[in-house]
Simulated scan of single mutants.
Amino acid sequence: MRGERLGIVSLRLDAFYCVLVGLLVAASAAVSAPHVGLAAPVVATLGVVVVAWGVLVWVLTSRLPLVRALQLVAAANVVVALGLTVVST
């Protein structure tokens, strides 16, 4: 598989994974909320946000040059990782 094709497939798998996980989080919000210390609507909203992100990543792979899409996704991942680090410490 060529590098460009590998990049597109990787982003689309990431998008699919985000949609799947987001749906599972949103659907299980009532059950999982007590275990994570958040209200169920907050957990459900986070799940919906992850679904929206997955859809956006999928769209980016077809609308932007691969390098730009990879840059945006990588930058977003860094921001989220930093944010999670701040709120979890």
Rank of each mutant, 00 (worst) to 15 (best):
H35C: 11
L70Q: 12
Q71H: 11
N77W: 15
A39I: 01
T89V: 13
L60V: 00
A39G: 14
L60R: 12
L13F: 01
P34W: 06
L60E: 10
L23H: 06
V51Y: 01
R68V: 10
C18E: 10
L24Y: 03
A52D: 01
F16I: 12
V48K: 01
R63L: 14
T85V: 14
Q71F: 11
A76P: 10
V19H: 01
C18D: 09
A39T: 07
A26W: 09
V55K: 05
T45P: 00
G22P: 03
V51M: 03
L6Q: 14
P34H: 07
R68Q: 10
G83P: 14
R68G: 00
V42N: 03
G54A: 01
R2D: 15
V87I: 14
V25A: 06
V36P: 04
N77H: 15
Q71L: 13
G54H: 02
V78W: 13
S62W: 07
A44Q: 08
L20C: 10
S62K: 02
P34R: 04
S10L: 10
A74N: 13
A74M: 13
L84C: 13
V36A: 10
V79A: 08
A27R: 13
R68D: 07
L23I: 09
S62R: 10
L20D: 02
L70K: 08
L56D: 00
A26T: 06
V51P: 04
G7M: 01
W53A: 03
L38Q: 07
L11G: 05
L24G: 15
A44E: 07
R68E: 11
A81L: 13
S10Q: 04
H35G: 15
V67I: 02
W58M: 05
Q71C: 10
L11M: 10
S62G: 14
T45R: 06
I8T: 15
V87W: 12
V48G: 02
A75Q: 05
L6G: 09
A81S: 13
G83I: 02
A69G: 03
A52G: 04
A29Q: 04
L38N: 04
L66Q: 14
R68M: 09
S32P: 00
V55M: 07
V31H: 14
V42A: 10
S62Y: 00
V48M: 08
A26Y: 08
T45M: 06
S88I: 14
L82H: 09
T45L: 10
V67W: 05
H35L: 15
T61Y: 02
G83V: 07
L60F: 09
V25H: 03
E4N: 11
V36L: 08
V43I: 08
L56K: 01
D14S: 14
N77M: 13
L13K: 00
S28N: 08
R5Y: 04
Q71V: 13
T89C: 09
G37D: 09
V80C: 11
D14Y: 13
V36I: 03
V86L: 14
A15E: 02
